[in-house]
Each structure stands twice: as structure tokens, then as C-alpha cells.
Nucleic acid binder design. Structure first.
Lengths: 214, 214
DNA sequence: ATTTTCTGGATAGCTTCACTATCCTTGACT
DNA sequence: AGTCAAGGATAGTGAAGCTATCCAGAAAAT
């Protein structure tokens, strides 16, 4: 497949593809001859990944680069991968500035919720930053709510890990790593939109239970 | 409080405050005299809100404007608020382009998961878009995983609604609406970071159970 | 064999977002 | 009276993410 065909079939304009090439998001094609490179299905897949991450998840290209770095060259052990690469994974949220108060909040509540072995992951920082902001804006942290969140998070995480084919000999460790990294980021909007839908559902239900006086 | 003092105490530079004023994110101060405006604690709070939404949640100012619109002039019924304003609420994710396939996926799975009364909310569109992307990238939808997500989402949503002081006569309906709108967006990163932490936790646990052959 | 097409590389331009800086007039405190 | 500062208008900045143009030269078409 030549560049023009890649652009054709992927629907991504040529200049954009060149841009991704320059930015190191898309590997160069294998040179079929001195001046023409050959692109394969892997390039198509990668293009779909880039566009999808940007358009659906809103992650900056910088973060996509980190993700494809993990996909191209994943740690050998799938077990290590989840933990080790979690920090490289894009979130769509900006990297929060670490304040003392946020760190302290995170430490306290993570302990309370039973997340012991988690030292200083970016996720913990984001957790602290969000709690600090909520507090700042007059929505103080509530233990009952947080433990419900922890339960929900563990439910979701359990389902995530259940899908990973850990011991599958047919799947190389790198593929497993890619699978889990991708699943982690791709299902974030799924969980969030379901939460909003569930809120609407419950609000409606409680409206039925207790009709507002007219 | 004069502009300079507002800038001083909030830590936001004067030009930025002027920018927010121009953009309609911050209401004008009450004119203390012809050329000097008086800013109050509400302005400080609003500034904290703006900066927090941008810095912690990464929402574009455009979306913050939608949110403050809801806060400034919320629907009277707190019940109606959640449902009606959910569509105005920022997400940090871009508005997904609605494809047929995504819509169909959303319809099918929402039905499967028992979300019946939900027609065409933005959340449903995002849900569909995310599923379509995952499928496209080789992570097909898995019913068991999705129903775990639905359970998790309902758990979190239940905790959200439990905190809302529905019938509290001391809290005006507008304050209740503001509270729920803010809670909805502020706790999104909390849930997400807990999921990642729970993944790491579970991965570690399964590593202990079944040590990799060395 | 010659013409046309297209490639990869380089460079420059564009658009949006979120500020940031400058200028100016006019009113306020001292 | 004189300096200071508010507020409005306008323009400039910088990053992100493209998009457009130009070019030398190899490949394909005729």
C-alpha cells in the first residue's frame, strides 16, 4: 500500500499522515524502493488508533505517543505491564499540579479505602487533586460516597482483568499488554457515561416515588 | 474588593480575570462608583471553579460557561435538574461524532443492560462512540464486562444521589441543583483514578497467586 | 524515451484556544 | 493638583494540531 492508498482507505488526509509520521506516532513504511514506502495493515490500525484516541477520547497527541510507545515495546510480563505502564497511559485529563493538601487527602482516603500498596502513582495524584478541588468548591468529601466509589471501581477493575488472557500461550505477552493498556483507556468513557445514565435513571425513579407537590 | 485585590487573593492574574469577564464566565462586579467595581466572595468562588475545572478536569472554557449557566440559573426542580442539565455538563471528552454503527451499538447494549427510558442523551452517544472505537481497535464488546460496568455505574450513581439533599427545605432548589451538577463532574476523575488503582491492586494480587515462571 | 505522476522531506502557514500585554480615558484617593 | 488605578478596547503570544506548498528525483504510463 502506498501513501496515497493508505490515505484513501483510512480516510485520513495525506498531510495529516505525514504529520503523524514526523511526530513519530506512525512508524515509517518499509522502503519498497528508493523513493516509495510500503504501508501495511498495521499502519491502518495505528491510524485508526490515533484518530480514535483524539476524536473519541480527546487525548493529546503527546499522550498517544506514550501509549503507542507502550504498544510497540511493551514490558515482557503482562503482570508488570499493567502496573508499570499505567503511568504512561493517557487520560484526557491534564496532569494535576501536586499540592500538599491534595497529597495528604489522597494518602488519607486511599488508606481508609484499603488501597495500601499504592504509593505515588499518577492516579493517586489525580485522585487527590479532584478531592481537593471538590472540597474547595464546597462539596466536602464523604466517606460513604467514597467507599461506594471504591466498590464500584473494584467491580469495574475486576471485569477488566477478567478479560485479559493472562495465561494464553497463543497470545504473546506483548499482545496481552497491549490489550490491557488499550482496554483501560477505551472503557473510561464507557464507565462515565453509564454513571450519568444511571444517575438520570435513579433521579427519575425517585421522582416517581415521591412526586413533587404541585 | 477591588479587581487588584481579587487578583491578589485568588492568585489569578488581572488580565486573566478580565478575560473571564469578557468571556462571560465571571459576572461583572457591582459598580461601587462610576469607575470602580466591587467584587465579593461569590467572585472568588467562581474563579476557583473556573481554574479548577480547567486545571484539574481539563474542560474547555466553553463547557465551563455551560456549567456556570446552569449554576447561575438552574431549573427549579432538583429532580428535573439532573436529567435536564446533564446534557449541558462538561465532560473533558470531545463531543463524539454520531455514526450509525455507534448509535446501534448504544441502543442494543443499553437495552441489554436495562437502561430503557434513556433515549438520546449525549451520554448515550458517548457510550456508543466508545464501544464502536473499542470494537474497531480489536477489543470487542463483552457482555459480562459491560454488565459489571453497569453495576459499578449504578453503585456510584446511587452514592451520588444519596448525598443530594432533596427535600431539605433549608437548601433552595437552585443550591441543590448546583450541588448535584458539580458533584457529577467533580467526581468523574475520582472514579476513574480509583479504577486504575484497583486494577493495579488486582494485578498485583493475581501476581502473588500465580507467580510467573522465571 | 519521454512525459506525467507521485514520493518523501522540508518549510511555512493556518485556526483555535487561552491567555497576556499595551494603550487610553477617566475617575478616585491624597 | 497630581499621581494612581479601573476598566474598556485592541493586539500580540504560544502551544496544539493540522494543512498547504515547494522541491528533487524515482516510478509508471505512453
Amino acid at each position: 500500500m502506498k501513501l496515497a492508498e493508505l490515505a484513501q482507505t483510512s480516510g485520513v488526509p495525506i498531510p495529516s499522515i505525514k504529520y503523524y509520521l514526523r511526530a513519530g506516532l506512525l512508524p515509517a513504511g518499509s522502503p519498497r524502493s528508493a523513493r516509495i514506502a510500503e504501508y501495511g495493515p498495521a499502519h491502518l490500525h495505528r491510524l485508526r488508533l490515533i484518530r480514535g484516541m483524539v476524536e473519541v477520547l480527546g487525548v493529546p497527541l503527546e499522550s498517544v505517543r506514550a501509549l503507542v510507545g507502550v504498544l510497540d515495546d511493551p514490558p515482557a510480563s503482562p503482570l508488570a505491564t499493567l502496573g508499570a505502564t499505567m503511568s504512561e497511559l493517557p487520560t484526557g485529563f491534564p496532569e494535576p499540579a501536586a499540592t500538599d493538601h491534595a497529597a495528604q487527602l489522597a494518602k488519607h482516603w486511599l488508606g481508609e479505602l484499603g488501597f495500601d500498596a499504592v504509593p505515588d502513582a499518577p492516579s493517586a495524584r489525580r485522585f487527590g487533586a479532584a478531592l481537593a478541588l471538590a472540597e474547595d468548591l464546597g462539596i466536602p468529601v464523604d466517606g460513604a460516597q467514597l467507599s461506594a466509589y471504591a466498590r464500584a471501581a473494584r467491580t469495574a477493575a475486576g471485569a477488566d482483568l477478567a478479560r485479559v488472557p493472562w495465561g494464553d500461550a497463543s497470545a504473546p505477552a506483548t499482545a496481552v499488554a497491549a490489550f490491557s493498556a488499550l482496554g483501560t483507556v477505551l472503557f473510561e468513557p464507557v464507565l462515565l457515561s453509564l454513571r450519568r445514565l444511571a444517575q438520570a435513571e435513579l433521579a427519575e425513579a425517585s421522582a416517581q416515588d415521591e412526586p413533587p407537590e404541585i
